[in-house]
Design a protein around this nucleic acid. Structure first.
Length: 790
RNA sequence: GCCGAAGUGGCGGAACUGGCAGACGCGCCGGACUCAAAAUCCGGUUCCCUUCGGGGAGUGUGGGUUCGAUCCCCACCUUCGGCACCA
């Protein structure tokens, strides 16, 4: 027997798979009958800003790989592609640090990571590889951007945006944590800018539904929180002396009679237009402060504006105050204040000595509300809104926390926005036949507070496609979430030069059958991708409305108690472990560490146990190949154990999505096999062990398969458990007295209840606990236990 | 404050539908091989008591349902995650 030399056999089989295009999956040709069992296995694509894969990637892609192998061998037509989220800020910042061009940095990182992936032996169809920064890809990103604009879902708007002073660009809401930029930690500022937006709010309600999508409850809850749907009413308050209306949003129209004052946000246009000088001064000071700082303040502050609003239900004059506890970007930026039934309004009233009127009693019924007295909260709200609606002073509405998606970025390394600004014609799309607008190679792409592209006259100056006059290109680039919102569709048809994809091909493979990735993308990538697919479906480009039929989140691989990440610098790469033990050991260990959806601690010494198992496995299989009779028998103890292992592995991987217990099951089988390598049924058990470990450790499995005299295990049908062998001839019957185990008996599987009870009563141990008495009650569960109650 | 998830040996964890708690692995202890060590192999390893037959306790805490609860119900504690002056 040769020694187990992982590097030799891994290189050998990787070469074979490569030469044979073993994992290439062709698309069904036009009019060709396509296999019905198709499976689109996808893991979130890596972001090649760092020079290496980390263990989180290894976990993620190995899980996908196990799924891929088991499905392939079970007869599914499996699509399993890979690509690169190559545009974006971290990559650009890394390039700046290194003093190189982002393209150089990124393409070098992609080379490294691709080599690592191949070294790990993942079953990827490399002929479908895509990268966001390649013109062949971003041509269609730009085309899609124009579709959004043409369909009214993309627009330009001036408004306050989140500006990171360190990264010198606008950043998205989900990248702000406690008022700071998640990436660099700088305090985010508000700036007035004209920006491109995608109208995610148009799909707010639909994004709350997950029809046909099997998603973790948790992820849907995060998205629901983020969307923040809130049913209520918009009510109009009239300012008599100015002859104008101010709308408010409220979820508590039932408390309208309890409104004793009225508050507008410092940024509310009413303040600048009509408030007293003192109030305007307050608003200026408050508006300059961060929302988070304002929230941290416990004391309520505010100033009376000098005007009054009329309560639409009873004509009462309510003083209008400006206060920073009311936020301009939620609802209408103005509220009716009901100090008796809202904690914040209550604090404000107390601070400024404003009146408090109770309008809901302890039983939850309306009081002091004239003709609405006695109604419940729900009835009251409905009745009051209905009454106001009849007068044109209110209507039921739904408000959302979700904002439209701001997609412009003032940085270099992204997809150019395919629009031209002409003084005569306005904002004009670059004609489709001129796409892509190529990202120019420029020398100086360091951030300077204005987009690097804006400084490049050669790029910026262009003829207007409409009037031919001088015009300027849009100097911004797109948020990288635009790229990742559709990359998974491009995979199905990656070389299409006339369209982003062929709809028939997309509809064949999609939606993604199983998506695996981090839950940190719940409010970013996963939400935007759903938005994209709903829009694309509405335009007739796709035949489905949810991109990811099933979703799974892997846990974090932690080192020293904190999650591995580039920013924390505690990234452990797979290279050293592969060099020391081989790819199969790494693959097995990442999955053996624990349940894949829970965080796990990377213990470098832990891989030793797996290595020991692999060496032992190697030895035992060789031993069996030499000593066990061939063809051998199929129904002994080992064969039955092997059969149970098949059932366990298959069920865990396919139904339970659990990857660590199958490894334990195979270890058990190998342990038993090692004590009887010459048994009549050892050969069938050995073949089973090798066959079912193949998705986890494909190289050693392939090699041992040849040792057992076979070939091409990666194409071998996945073994099926033999139902007949799963039924045990005898089993261990547990005998309890008062629910406590007192004895265990080997019994024939065919015995009926009466026979089991009779056998159990004969047990010495049981008799001593029965103390000669008759059981008051006897419970029999055939196949499991007998319980005597005394 | 609202919403969600999780608490099992020294450690990672298993127990899938209410039926043997601790599979598998790490670590540790003992033994074999060795001049010795590493590697490998064999055995042991929840805790307490024990006359070595066995007995008792035990899955965050306290209750409940049940012949029987890690699993179901109620209350609480702790940890983690999401949202949050959101009207």
């Amino acid at each position: 027997m040769d020694r187990y030399e992982p590097h030799e056999i891994e290189a050998k089989w990787q070469r074979v798979w490569d030469d044979e295009r073993a994992f290439h999956v062709p698309n069904p040709g036009p009019g060709e009958a396509a296999p019905e069992n198709h499976w689109y296995q996808l893991e979130m694509l890596p972001y090649p800003s760092g020079p290496s894969l980390h263990m989180g990637h290894v976990l993620n892609y190995t899980m996908g790989d196990v799924q891929t192998h088991v499905r392939r061998r079970s007869g599914w037509n499996v699509l399993r592609p890979m690509g690169w989220d190559a545009f974006g800020l971290p990559a650009e910042n890394a390039a700046i640090r290194e003093g190189r061009h982002p393209r150089e940095t990124i393409e070098r990182n992609i080379e490294t990571m691709r080599a690592q992936m191949k070294r790990l032996g993942w079953a990827i169809d490399w002929e479908r590889e895509v990268a966001a920064h390649q013109p062949t890809f971003y041509r269609w990103t730009q085309w899609l951007f124009q579709q959004f604009v043409k369909n009214g879902l993309g627009y330009r708007k001036e408004g306050p945006v989140n500006w990171c002073p360190n990264d010198q660009t606008v950043i998205a809401n989900e990248y702000i944590v406690d008022g700071r930029c998640e990436r660099c930690g700088a305090e985010v500022e508000l700036r007035q800018m004209t920006q491109w937006f995608f109208k995610t709010t148009a799909y707010a309600d639909e994004l709350l539904e997950y029809e046909g999508a099997e998603w973790p409850e948790k992820t849907m809850a995060i998205q629901r929180n983020w969307i923040g749907r809130s049913e209520g009413a918009e009510l109009l308050f009239h300012v008599d002396e100015l002859g104008m209306d101010i709308p408010v949003f409220t979820t508590r129209a039932d408390t309208l009679f309890g409104a004793t004052f009225f508050v507008v946000a410092p940024e509310h246009p009413f303040v600048a237009a009509h408030a007293s000088a003192e109030a305007q001064d307050y608003a200026r000071r408050a508006g300059a402060r961060q929302t988070e700082d304002r929230a941290a303040e416990t004391e309520k502050t505010g100033v009376f504006t000098g005007h009054y609003a009329t309560n639409p239900v009873n004509g009462e004059q309510l003083p209008i105050w400006v206060a920073d506890y009311v936020l301009m970007d939620y609802g209408t930026g103005a509220i009716m204040a009901v100090p008796a039934h809202d904690e914040r309004d209550g604090q404000f009233a107390e601070t400024f000595g404003l009146p408090v009127v109770q309008v809901i009693d302890d039983d939850g019924r309306l009081v002091n509300s004239e003709r609405f007295d006695g109604l419940t909260i729900e009835e009251g709200a409905r009745a009051i809104v209905a009454a106001l609606e009849a007068e044109g002073r209110g209507k039921a509405t739904v408000n959302y926390r979700l904002r439209d998606w701001s997609v412009s970025r003032q940085r270099y390394w992204g997809c150019p926005i395919p629009y031209i600004h002409c003084e005569q014609c306005g904002v004009v799309p670059v004609p489709e036949e001129e796409l892509p607008v190529l990202l120019p190679d420029i020398e100086d792409y360091a951030p300077k507070g204005k987009p690097p592209l804006a400084q490049n006259e050669e790029y910026m100056n262009v003829d207007c496609p409409q009037c031919g006059g001088p015009a300027r290109r849009d100097p911004d680039t797109m948020d990288t979430f635009v790229d990742s919102s559709w990359y998974f569709i491009r995979y199905v048809d990656p070389h299409n030069e006339t369209a982003p994809w062929d709809r028939a091909v997309a509809d064949y493979w999609m939606p993604v059958s199983q998506y695996i990735g981090g839950i940190d993308h719940a409010t970013g990538h996963l939400l935007y991708s759903r938005f994209f697919v709903k829009a694309l479906n509405d335009w007739g480009l796709l035949g489905f409305r949810e991109p990811f039929a099933r979703l799974f989140h892997q846990g974090w691989v932690q080192l020293g108690g904190t999650k591995m990440s580039k920013t924390k610098g505690n990234v452990a790469g797979p290279d050293e472990i592969i060099a020391a033990y081989g790819a199969d050991a790494v693959r097995l260990y990442v999955l053996f560490m624990g349940p894949a959806d829970q965080d796990m601690e990377w213990v470098p010494e832990g891989v030793e146990g797996i290595v020991r198992f692999l060496r032992r496995f190697w030895r035992v299989i060789h031993d069996v190949a030499e000593r066990a009779p061939s063809p051998g028998e199929r129904d002994g103890t080992l064969a039955r154990k092997a059969n149970e292992t098949i059932a366990k592995v298959t069920d865990d991987v396919l139904r339970r999505f659990q990857f660590h217990t199958p490894i334990a099951a195979v270890m058990e089988l190998v342990n038993e096999l090692s004590s009887a390598p010459d048994a009549p049924d050892a050969r069938v058990a050995a073949e089973t062990a090798v066959s079912v470990i193949q998705p986890y450790a494909p190289h050693i499995a392939e090699e041992l398969w040849t040792v057992l005299g076979h070939e091409r295990l990666w194409e071998e049908p996945w073994p099926e458990a033999d139902e007949a062998l799963l039924v045990r001839e005898t089993y261990e019957l547990v005998v309890q007295v008062n629910g406590k185990v007192r004895d265990r008996l080997q019994v024939e599987a065919s015995l009926g209840e009466d026979e089991l009870v009779a056998l159990a009563r004969e047990s010495e141990k049981v008799r001593s606990h029965l103390n000669g008495g008759e059981p008051r009650k006897t419970i029999v569960v055939p196949g499991k236990l007998v319980n005597f109650v005394v």
